[in-house]
Design a binder for these strands. Structure first.
Lengths: 207, 207
DNA sequence: CCTAACATACCGTCCAGTCGGAATCTACGG
DNA sequence: CCGTAGATTCCGACTGGACGGTATGTTAGG
């Protein structure tokens, strides 16, 4: 589930190791989609990076789109699990939202390529996969909506701000992190997560 | 400069009207790039939408990339003009930032396709155009950085939040608007702009 | 009549997906 | 343990179509 950065060469099975081949192809597709985009990446490039051939690719996957939708699914599942966990562990809407923001930012830094692919190549999904992704996303959005609405009802959140817009604002600033954050920079992911959570909850202006 | 939504058929010049043809091609490319992406759009589609042929396209533009960089330039110029105007008109960093956010959001709603193209197809720019875009963007980022830093120095902004991150947060929530805002929805652009400005400046939590 | 503004036919390239076969693994009967 | 039949995994050449760009021809404007 975690994004591979290196591929420790095998636990000596035989010449065939379909699991690993499949994962190698997924990893290499993820990396290339993230860097060059879906249409900017050819299947040939993917298989070369994974050091196999097109035969292997089309044995494990139905199509190029198939891989794209698998990447989307994986990312959405990670997001869902995180938010479910938070809703169980924390009570107050304020702290729930804080944790959701922090966790989102951390996820974005950890799954940077997934996020890049998700938000830039989503449009190339069609049919069933597209519908699935939309359904899962709507559920995530609704979960966050509920947090904000609950907060407003309890008088904890500023009622002037439309809950929907607040959620989109929070999602936006979190997702945006993938555009600029680099692991080798001066800032830790934790620091960024805390800063953005503070920004959204307390604002930039001192009072 | 404003994004065309319809194309009022000509002020009867003759059979040739290069200005209009050029603009028609730009508009149609913008629309298609925004919807289908750069690589997802063929030159053939562009010219068909503009009801001309490839000859006309390659008469007015050097390449497909050329059009892409023109779209980027146009959007960046709009952004730059807006921020320059605000810096002249308003003094306080707080109000400067508020206006920048408001103006950014309004720009994003008005130039939705430009924004979509800008943030999703930027990677397909290479060489000179890519360098130009990067330079212009860096200038915009720096202008915003300066506002926040000035605010912190004057004790107006929360010093706990890293200025850089605050700027990226603000830019992110503004840019993100293009992902969900639709003109035919229930919310006015003004309303969204105000909400997001309030969110960034005062935060969601009441005190 | 010369140039700008197009139109149209065409070219070389690239690319997603296919297909027949080779290599490897697995199950099972002997 | 051996042999082998059938399934799984992978190879790599190939196809048919699409696409960016060009070359050449045609029409309108000054």
């Amino acid at each position: 589930m975690a994004p591979r950065t290196q591929t420790p060469r095998r636990k000596t099975r035989g010449s065939y190791d379909p699991e690993q081949t499949r994962q190698l192809l997924l990893d290499s597709a993820l990396e290339l989609f993230g860097d060059q985009g879906f249409h900017g990446t050819s299947v040939q490039e993917i298989v070369e990076r994974a050091q196999v051939t097109k035969g292997a690719f089309y044995h494990h996957f139905e199509s190029k789109q198939d891989v794209l939708s698998l990447i989307h699914d994986e990312f959405l599942d990670v997001q869902r699990e995180a938010i479910e966990r938070i809703l169980e562990e924390v009570e107050s809407p304020v702290e729930q939202l804080r944790e959701v923001i922090r966790e989102s930012v951390l996820t974005v830094t950890r799954y940077r390529q997934h996020v890049a692919v998700f938000f830039q190549e989503r449009r190339y999904l069609t049919g069933r996969p597209a519908a699935d992704v939309k359904r899962k996303r709507d559920k995530l959005d609704k979960a966050m909506d509920d947090i904000v609405i609950a907060g407003v009802e309890q008088g904890l959140f500023d009622a002037r701000i439309t809950p929907r817009v607040a959620v989109f604002g929070v999602v936006g600033m979190s997702a945006w992190v993938h555009q600029w954050y680099r692991e080798d920079g001066t800032m830790s992911a934790e620091q960024v997560a805390d800063d953005l959570a503070n920004l959204a909850l307390d604002g930039l202006v001192v009072r």
